[in-house]
Amino acid sequence: MNDSSSTLDSADAPEVASNEPIISIDNLSFSYDLGSTNTLRDISLEIPAGKVTAFIGPSGCGKSTLLRCLNRMNDLVDTAKVTGGSISILGQDINAPDVEAIELRKHVGMVFQKYNPFPKSIYENVAYGLRVQGIKNKSVLDQAVEESLQKSALWDEVKDRLDSSALGLSGGQQQRLCIARAIAVKPQIVLMDEPCSALDPIATARIEELIAELQEDFTIVIVTHNMQQATRVSNRTAFFYLGELIEYDDTSKIFGNPTRKQTEDYVSGRFG
């Protein structure tokens, strides 16, 4: 907390060579009940920087679980445990004993399935992440809030009512506000857990446009149960089934010419 403002400084942020994977998952197994049954089994995949990667699969296949492993949100579940393998982000094993989940989460932001702005003003929602990192300087906050809202394509809609409650916004706006809140702390990676599942088609389209724009600045990992959405927004797609990674490739390959039978069945709508 003492020098946390430096995490915002992009010069200080960990650099990755463009060909290096920003996240590499190696033989990961994960359990929600202290290892009795593994929700995820032997997952290995590498997620490239600056791209949008989609996790797809039928419900209960473990795609959301894997996503929550990436910023260790599963720590909140008492009995959750990584039972094998490792995850490296920016070259650092994130489950190493000297890694602080709080520091990790400053680099790996997250947007949730159900939009969850705090019952505060729009401004305070976006500034929240910066405030908990100890930034009090008003001009820094103002600038970050404006920048994030612009990036999330919300600025024009809300700039005149930054002080009004976030709960007064529409559902789509609230979710974009949550995205703005997540990117305000300048993470390298943004995880999105079915960000459009609670939204109508028009709002969904806005969010999808936004994801395409955000791709320039952030590495995005998105979980979706909507296959069209995966084809529209992602560069790479991973298909999970029953806790295992079945296939991982370029999105066009997965949807056009999958190698595995299960993938083909799923993307063509034969099950799931």
């Binding site: 000297d98 890694v99 680099h107």
Partner: peptide, 11 residues
């Protein structure tokens, strides 16, 4: 390679 995400703060 530099270690990231390390604990900060006094103990």
């Amino acid at each position: 390679m530099a270690k990231h995400f390390q604990r900060k703060g006094r103990r």
